[in-house]
Write a protein that binds this DNA or RNA. Structure first.
Lengths: 341, 341
DNA sequence: GTGAAAGCGCTAACAC
DNA sequence: GTGTTAGCGCTTTCAC
């Protein structure tokens, strides 16, 4: 079918060993021979088969990437970061999008293992229930290096890049407090997920450190989706003892809040201050004064990929766990306006 | 290193052929033998090597996907659509993100060819200059089925899914005209790209059909980026004979316009109507009344993937070009407000 | 400097 | 029903 190394060898009048040598720049080859071979390669439009090479060398130079929501730029940026580093090291990326579906995640892992990839970078989706041991054991029995990126998974057995969600939520809530707010509502993400749990801790911590009692009436349980945030926000706006600020646990949910605000003609932050987790590029560019706490997404991808490469290069020696925690940045937009009164 | 088909054969006391038979469900195997083999597979935690299989069958069940901007949800959704169909057919996706860089695109094609993928789906970036024959010949000499998705490439030799940009721009402009607007500015995308050219045609056509002279002073040349749109919009807002509406050629550029509007306290569409190409999910959810013309992104991905599968299945017979053109949808938000006066 | 030969893990005739 | 054998396209000793 397609042209092989043997065709080149024949065309150049050498053995395939020699062709292999010039392909891989290994061992000495006479200048003239090399030129003949290169000429044949050009003329026959030959491209070596990575498949055959992989089988022979037992290395695929391919890594697997699993994300829950490819159309969310948050993950798009993570992949972008991963891709940048992969490009430097000439690694290929096999991508799986799971639509937040654990079943698909497991299928992806299986397919990746068949592909004999060198390692997996995964941003796990949140579990349907708290108990998720089946998934974890699959991950552990994979026999392939696994790097977690900011996962929702409660597990300390894997290396990975994480965000300090406690600190992030603390900083965000604190900024509202410093601006004079005392009645600060919280809209959580799906409480099965680690980030949501941590952010709740950070929120409470900030209140407590500032001697503001935690009022359960101000804590609303969402699910990371904008629809729930919209409903909750409308609810909030009808409270008798309305909060003056809202802390929201995800970028999608900010949109839900904004929608409710927009409908009710609430100005941000004059009528209601808001801080959310993860930026929304669009609102940002447009210039809306939405403050946010932002994990460095592209950087997370880059670091994750570097962790994996480290792991691959240091064969047996350097396999110990490396968990890197990044501090999210608090970005105050029109911060003077965060002031309550 | 890892466990192979031979290990299973030995453990089950059969030949590897028989193991292969149960793996692929081909040929008859005695129930008892089959069970022994399955047991061995389970106990040894065996996963067959797709690499070896690929080499042997000359099929990789992998397709390449090349996009220019993975962190743009527009492409994220295309990939999502591709992935949905790929999942149904158990195909793997090797992904390359090119950052709008033709060099990287070419490198990606080379690497994909090495991987002996079955086909490529590519959303080409726009060319740096009009003459782009080198790129096209690379694509043609690839020897692998290529499917274009809404590319910026001026080429009719490839199958693909496309948007009727002329019709889209015509409809959008027309909607503004029907709302009473006569002075309609246009902010173009990069004019090297096919969509920009087509959209310009559609815009002009709508004006002409309505007996509105095309005024070159109202045509501004952008580059798809929000920064340029911002500058241009500020310029527009200072014109003596200001337009009453703006037609914008990309979602990113809408953001630039909105930013300028926001700064100048221009209300949409009361002070200035705007219609853009491609939706912005965020603004949409928030409920801003930004009308847009929208190609069905996920659907494009799905159709592109199906085209490719068609192509792969119908060996030599059905290889003729299939170019599917989808009509973009005009989505009028708060359409009554589009009315000029 | 170059080639012969074995082998990577699997599939696919073909034989029994 | 099951095994033998010959590859798939490459790399890698080990000779020469």
């Amino acid at each position: 079918m397609s042209v092989t190394i043997n065709d080149i060898a024949r065309a150049a009048g050498v053995s395939r060993t020699t062709v292999s040598r010039v392909l891989n720049d290994s061992g000495y080859v006479k200048e003239e021979t090399r030129n003949n071979i290169l000429k044949a390669i050009r003329e026959l439009n030959y491209t070596p088969s990575a498949i055959a090479r992989s089988l022979s060398t037992n290395k695929t130079n391919t890594i697997g990437v699993i994300v829950p929501e490819i159309n969310n730029p948050f993950f798009g940026e993570i992949i972008k970061g991963i891709g940048q580093v992969a490009d430097e090291y000439n690694l290929n990326l096999i991508l799986f999008n799971t639509d937040d579906n654990r079943k698909k995640e497991l299928k992806a892992l299986k397919l990746l293992k068949e592909q004999r990839i060198q390692g997996v970078i995964i941003t796990p989706t949140y579990p349907e229930d708290d108990f998720d041991s089946n998934y974890l054991s699959t991950l552990e029995n994979l026999g392939i290096p696994v790097i977690l990126i900011d996962g929702h998974v409660e597990c300390f057995n894997f290396s990975g890049v994480f965000i300090d969600h406690i600190k992030g939520a603390y900083d965000g809530t604190n900024a509202l407090i410093e601006a004079g707010h005392k009645k600060i509502a919280l809209i959580t993400g799906c409480m099965n997920s680690r980030p949501a749990k941590d952010r709740l801790i950070g929120y409470k911590k900030a209140l407590i450190m500032n001697n503001i009692p935690v009022d359960e009436n101000y804590i609303f349980y969402g699910d990371y989706k904008h629809e729930s945030a919209y409903e909750i926000t409308k609810q909030i706006l009808e409270m008798k003892d309305k909060p003056t600020a809202i802390f929201v646990m995800s970028n999608m949910m900010i949109l839900g809040c904004m929608k409710a605000f927009y409908e009710e003609n609430i100005r941000v932050p004059e009528d209601m201050a808001i801080i959310g987790f993860d930026k929304i590029e669009a609102l940002n560019i447009v210039g809306m004064n939405i403050s946010f706490i932002n994990g460095p997404t592209i950087e997370m991808g880059r670091i994750g990929m570097k962790l994996l490469i480290d792991n691959l290069e240091n064969k047996e020696s350097n396999k110990e766990l490396k968990r890197i925690t990044l501090l999210p940045k608090l970005v105050l937009k029109g911060s003077e306006k965060l002031i309550k009164r």
